[in-house]
């Protein structure tokens, strides 16, 4: 009951406070901050830690090959991005971010597609296609071990507020918000699972449930479907906003790609 009341008043606060200052306030980070990894069974953790057996590396191997494969225009990703020129080590930890040219919020998938259309004269890859997943996983892997840190100022502020609103709003037939599970009740049992803090730092991740690698947006679609809400589209503005909110909320945790999740 007490938690419910606290939640209701929090909902009222976020709904009633319109000014930018209150929506930009830092997220209520669960303490201590724990990656999804910490909520897994030991053998699932062992699979993530095994740099041979972790099936996510199948996509990373392919991503690495694609990264150095020249497009029809003659340009490969690796022609611009080397260890010394425009290096990508650590870069993924600062996504989503505002693209200076368009002013839009872009995540890693969108950035890769922007590179393709702007510099490689290639069509964008379809969201959740094996190619885009492979490239995204490879680029994220180059930041494995880098703590997440994102900018929520300026043009990103409205996106951040929108993501936070999505996270805190009850939805679906179960009438549940993300925050009710992942802020208020993490660590407790829900059937056979322990509720995690809901961080996206392992993504793209290999989920045992999917039997495949998948993007954070695929995970968010499953979350929405889980509370019987209408899942948003891959790459939708709602999910981009949530991705930014989640990144800010996970700030300090390290990128784990390729994570293994249940």
């Amino acid at each position: 009951m007490k938690a419910g009341l606290a939640f209701l008043s929090a909902l009222c606060l976020s709904a009633c406070g319109d000014d930018a200052a209150s929506t930009q306030s830092p997220p209520a980070q669960p303490q201590p901050l724990l990656s999804g990894y910490e909520f897994l069974q030991p053998q699932t953790r062992a699979l993530q830690d095994d740099n041979f057996a972790n099936p996510g590396f199948l996509w990373i191997d392919r991503g690495e090959a694609l990264f150095s494969t020249a497009a029809a225009s003659g340009e490969a990703c690796s022609d611009c991005h080397t260890d010394t020129s425009l290096p990508l080590a650590g870069a993924a930890a600062h996504y989503p971010q505002i693209d200076a040219e368009s002013g839009d919020l872009v995540n890693l998938e969108a950035r890769i597609n922007l590179c393709r259309t702007r510099y490689q004269d290639e069509a964008p890859l379809e969201y959740e296609s094996d190619e885009l997943l492979s490239l995204t996983a490879y680029v994220a892997y180059l930041s494995r071990g880098t703590p997440v840190s994102v900018d929520i100022e300026g043009a990103a502020a409205d996106w951040y507020a929108r993501g936070r609103d999505y996270f805190e709003t009850r939805r679906g037939q179960f009438n549940l918000s993300c925050t009710q599970c992942h802020d208020d009740n993490w660590g407790k049992k829900l059937r056979g699972d322990t509720i995690s803090q809901g961080h996206g730092t392992g993504f793209p991740a290999y989920r045992l449930e999917w039997q495949s690698l998948g993007s954070l947006h695929r995970r968010l679609r499953d979350c929405d479907a889980g509370v019987r809400a209408e899942p948003r589209m891959f790459g939708s503005d709602d999910y981009l906003a949530v991705e930014l909110y989640l990144a800010k909320r996970a700030e300090g945790l390290e990128i784990e790609t390729p994570g293994v999740r249940r």
Partner: peptide
Amino acid sequence: VTLAACLIG
């Protein structure tokens, strides 16, 4: 084999 919290589909 435990049951997952959120079964989809």
